[in-house]
Design a protein around this nucleic acid. Structure first.
Lengths: 228, 228
DNA sequence: TGTGATCTAGGACTTCTGTCCAATATGTTG
DNA sequence: CAACATATTGGACAGAAGTCCTAGATCACA
């Protein structure tokens, strides 16, 4: 939430002010993505929003509030995207799980996601607000995964399904640094998506509670080779 | 590499100098891990190394060189750890793959790894040197995975095995933000390790080239449920 | 023991950054 | 139009941070 000077009233309802705030947040997001957190300065944001520092500080009296609004706004966008994709009820649970996996893997490759999330992860290590925002978006993502997993594997306990959702969600996020926008292995993105879809579908279909709890040793399982 | 003042000679062979440099790098690493990159300042490093800024700048005339040596030193440590674990030739390929998976997942939970890697990922987005260092460590890790995968699946092409290694390595890294040191889901770490071992072993054993290339749709595969 | 090499302390200097303010401009509304 | 709310400017200010320098302390060795 914006914190204004004590003597000022909240004027966010004013149309001009709303536009200004929106352009500030867009500018801040672009600075963070293009130049990284250390260069997210009031002056850089003001420049990119084509205003002066003085004017910026009229809308955001301090940097902390600007950062908080920025994180909230960006993460809100991802939550909306995700709710939309997860609401698709036309297909089978298997197909929906695959669709969600491919959606998230595909999204990694966008400039915004590749630029924003590593910055968020680093921030979350030392900033409680960033940590909370990060928690909130991944919780949304995991819940969506967990719901589909519940349809495929109603026999599993909720906590086991949640664990699979956590594992899948985290695994996909980890691809970011490698197949993200302009990253070293970006060209393999589509194949990684295929591998991810196959791997996580198989995992959800075949794992059992004993394996999750470590009562079976993975390397001693007898199954072998692909049936092509 | 340290860059000294123009008029000074390289004195890194001196025992006192070596100790000072080592304590500087340790202090810098600790600042990075405990406080994050924005607080990695010459003064903070000097304080933690119990010396003055003036003295620090005798060893590191600028911050960039200090950061480079810091990244090199920390990553060198990980490379050595990894070479050691990958050199184990006592066990079967399956067991070695599982062992490597469990090693990396276990390492995520250490304070150093949970603190260092997210900072490295963010740095690598905008700093070429950090990007190169990041590349180098993950290449070592992927090569180790790829060698074991080659023993399990000699039928696959090298590029397909490399892709599996990339997918597995990236997936494991992604767990860091969730089950890392003092992270929200840290308690589930052991179970995540079980799921990872099962999931990636199954993947390596069963995937085929057609699936990697997207010639099969994962959701339409017929296999179902676990055989407990 | 003395002398040159190495190391250390303390501070100076400049630039950058967050914050703040007074003056002015712009817009809105009775 | 007048009066008021809102927005914008330009600059000031203090503190932080990177860099640099000089004087002195410490060490190794002839």
């Amino acid at each position: 939430m914006r914190k204004l000077r004590p003597q000022k009233r909240d004027n966010s309802a004013s149309p001009r002010g709303q536009i200004a705030v929106a352009s500030i947040l867009t500018a801040a997001r672009d600075v963070l993505i293009d130049e990284g957190y250390p260069r997210l300065t009031m002056r850089n944001v003001a420049d990119r929003a084509k205003m002066t520092v003085g004017n910026l500080s009229y809308y955001y009296a301090n940097k902390e509030d600007l950062l908080h609004d920025l994180l909230e706004a960006v993460i809100q966008g991802y939550v909306e995207d995700f709710d939309r994709i997860a609401g698709d009820k036309e297909r089978s649970p298997d197909e929906r799980l695959e669709e969600m996996i491919r959606f998230v893997v595909g999204d990694l490759a966008t400039k915004e996601t590749t630029g924003f999330f590593p910055a968020l992860w680093a921030l979350a290590s030392h900033d409680d607000f960033a940590a909370k925002e990060m928690s909130s978006i991944y919780e949304v993502e995991r819940n969506a995964f967990a719901r589909v997993i519940a349809e495929i594997r109603p026999d599993l306990q909720k906590k086991d399904r949640d664990l699979l959702a956590l594992f899948i969600s985290a695994s996909i996020e980890g691809q970011t640094m490698f197949i993200g926008y302009r990253r070293e292995k970006a060209a393999t993105g589509p194949m990684i998506a295929n591998v991810a879809a196959y791997s996580f579908l198989s995992l959800v279909r075949t794992i059992d509670a004993a394996t999750i709890r470590g009562l079976k040793v993975a390397a001693r399982t007898s199954e072998r080779r692909a049936a092509s």
